[in-house]
Design a protein around this nucleic acid. Structure first.
Length: 481
DNA sequence: TGAAATGTTGGGGCG
DNA sequence: ACGCCCCAACATTTC
């Protein structure tokens, strides 16, 4: 093949890149392109941290490609038009891309493929974003795994070094072609119609940002198992946003985790499980796309969630971090302020919305989808369905988090709460988890007035718990399965 | 990748 | 010394 085009989407790096490696090995001249997808950008609020992360990561990607003699062509429009147009202009024989199994992306790629085919251009896509995808790992009877633990065991038994070996790029780099003169440069945020955000205060974009985090994490991965549940502690890798946009390769992470696990690190084993959860939810989305709209366990589509103004007010209080439950509020404010939320808190916040407020989990899922820098449809949907007990391998519906005991367990001295709910800063560890239980003097001494400086609890947990047991119990009785 | 309700046990205070 | 009660601590079951 003489000429090829690599279309970057959620894989904004040069190293260990399946489509790029494949194209470089198959063609004499290879161009690289990214499209700011109008269909995705248009409905977004005019300030979105992800758009800024992507833009900055593209600048880094362009620089990395330029160092190898190439560069990045960045377009703005509908990919189904922009990619075929560019491919014809460059007279390539094929467009290479990595799989993206989100429903929108599948439809988009089908349109691109069809439009390319009109002028005889191939569309070739490869697995890149997960270690095992689609039908690669099935039960012995040939059905998809629906429960995590057997999936994980099969995954560990099945994944060989070859599955996580890097896709070579550097040695074929001389085949990279520089962008045409009129196609140079990454558009500014303003020219895309977006305002700057605060993401650069929290995240270093691009492969360099990912590598820094990864180095930092490898130095403490052995402590991951013990540290990961405490939001005030630096336990997690914080790599999720980089995994989402492919500024780091999943294979590089899995490789390191497997090596350290074999060397006896329990922390590495637990962290690898989290990477396997990611593969698990991606194959769930592939096999059961109805989860995007409905419960994985269809009988739970019949759950009667709270509705009307009261439900809207509860949802707004949850979203804005003013439920009166300090850990929940701290979590929701961390999300709004930084675009990140600690994983333990995602479970606490999701459980609170579905099982304390009785609000349809899909409303929470939508908010997370807007606010999370690392938002990934498969993982976000899986996590929400798990928390709402409607999902695959979900917790039983009667398992209901107590937001106060979760707080006492996982933020024992209240350090995390104080960081994001500063109006409670002066409360002692005894009082901070449930300020409404503290006596008048304690609150006054800390400058707290419930209902004025900090909300009263929007619901009573014990009563909410009973309502939730009834809400789900009706379904479980009516439609056993 | 719970929590609450209920049951059991055992130590200590006390008459 | 003994029975009785209380209740914390732990275990089991129930949701």
């Amino acid at each position: 093949m003489e000429r090829a085009l690599v279309w970057f989407r959620r894989d904004l790096r040069v190293d260990d890149h399946a489509a790029l490696s494949h194209a470089l090995r198959g063609a004499r001249a290879v161009w690289c392109a990214f499209v700011f997808d109008r269909n995705i950008l248009e409905p977004l609020p005019r300030a979105d941290r992800r758009v800024e992360f992507i833009r900055e990561s593209l600048v880094a990607l362009d620089r990395a490609l330029a160092k190898l003699g190439g560069g990045l062509i960045v377009l703005h429009g509908d990919p189904a038009e922009a990619i075929p147009k560019l491919a014809r202009e460059l007279e390539v024989a094929a467009v290479f891309a990595n799989h993206d199994d989100d429903p929108y992306a599948l439809a988009r790629d089908a349109r691109v493929r069809a439009a390319l085919a009109e002028t005889g251009i191939d569309f070739r896509s490869r697995k890149d974003h997960v270690v095992l995808e689609r039908d690669e790992l099935l039960t012995s009877s040939g059905t998809p795994f629906r429960v995590f633990t057997p999936y994980k065991n099969a995954w560990l038994a099945r994944v060989a070094p070859a599955d996580v070996a890097p896709h070579a790029v550097a040695e074929h780099a001389p085949r990279l072609a520089p962008p045409p003169e009129n196609r140079r440069g990454v558009p500014t945020l303003a020219s895309l119609g977006f305002a700057p955000t605060n993401i650069l205060e929290h995240v270093v974009p691009g492969a360099e940002g990912a590598n820094r985090l990864f180095d930092d994490f490898l130095a403490r991965i052995d402590r991951y198992a013990d540290a990961r549940d405490y939001p005030a502690v630096k336990g997690p890798s914080y790599l999720s946003v980089h995994l989402r946009f492919g500024t780091v390769s999943i294979r590089a992470l899995a490789r390191a985790a497997m090596e350290r696990m074999q060397a006896g690190s329990n922390g590495a084993a637990v962290w690898l499980s989290e990477l396997i959860w990611r593969d698990f939810y991606h194959q769930i989305l592939h096999h059961y796309p109805h989860v995007v709209e409905r419960a994985f366990r269809r009988e739970y589509d019949a759950v009667q969630w709270e509705e009307g103004d009261a439900a809207e007010r509860l949802l707004a209080a949850w979203r804005d971090g003013r439920t009166g439950y300090p850990l929940v509020d701290a979590a929701m404010r961390q999300l709004a302020q930084t675009g990140y939320m600690h994983n333990r808190l995602r479970m606490v916040a999701a459980s609170f919305l579905a099982k304390d407020l009785g609000v349809d989990w899909r409303a929470g899922e939508r908010w997370f989808a807007l606010a999370l820098n690392d938002f990934d449809l498969a993982a976000n949907n899986g996590g929400w369905q798990w928390a709402a007990s409607t999902g695959t391998d979900a917790q039983p519906y009667f398992r209901i988090f107590n937001p106060v005991s979760q707080s006492e367990k996982f933020d024992p001295d209240g350090a995390f709460i104080r960081r994001y709910v500063p109006e409670l800063r002066e409360l002692s560890a005894n009082a901070i988890h449930a300020p409404w239980r503290a006596d008048r003097d304690t609150l006054a001494a800390a400058g707290v007035t419930l209902g004025a400086t900090y909300p009263e609890p929007v619901v009573d947990h014990a009563a909410a718990r009973k309502r939730t047991l009834e809400r789900y119990g009706r379904v479980a009785k009516n439609e056993p399965r």
